[in-house]
């Protein structure tokens, strides 16, 4: 239970960093922390203490294998989700570099030509 609690703290820290920090690079770091917290959560969903890798070798009991092995599906999902997170991060970095060229600052509170 403790690990889920710590995981949610990680998520909230990322969200706080994304919303409250003014610096663009800090915002990107917050975004990445938030995504990784979700990825960690998905991995924890399939985790079993003392579990074995989900590979069915010859000579293994099927029912025992199902009981012992960890759930492989979340691990697959996390791979996809990491790739998506990476592409989001790459786009964010590219846009923040262009923003720096235009405004000569990374401070989001000074980047306010739009008023929405």
């Amino acid at each position: 239970m403790l690990i889920y609690f710590l995981n949610s703290i990680l998520f909230v820290m990322g969200l706080y960093c994304l919303i409250a920090k003014k610096h663009l690079v800090k915002k990107i770091i917050g975004m990445v922390i938030m995504e990784y917290a979700i990825n960690l959560f998905i991995i924890l969903l399939g985790y079993k203490k003392g579990g074995i890798p989900p590979i069915l070798l010859p000579g293994m009991e099927k029912s025992q294998f199902v009981q012992q092995s960890v759930d492989p599906l979340p691990q697959v999902l996390v791979l996809t989700s990491i790739v998506i997170g990476l592409s989001v991060m790459a786009l964010m970095v590219a846009i923040s570099l262009r923003l720096y060229e235009k405004y000569k600052t990374f401070d989001m509170s000074e980047i306010r030509r739009l008023h929405g």
């Binding site: 994304l18 979700i38 998506i84 846009i95 923040s96 923003l99 235009k102 980047i111 030509r113 739009l114």
Partner: peptide, 19 residues
């Protein structure tokens, strides 16, 4: 400049919603 700013805003909020 304005387009990049709008896109960054959209990216942050869109990223939160996807997460």
């Amino acid at each position: 400049a304005e387009e990049l700013e709008a896109s960054f805003k959209y990216l942050v909020l869109g990223g939160v919603s996807s997460t």
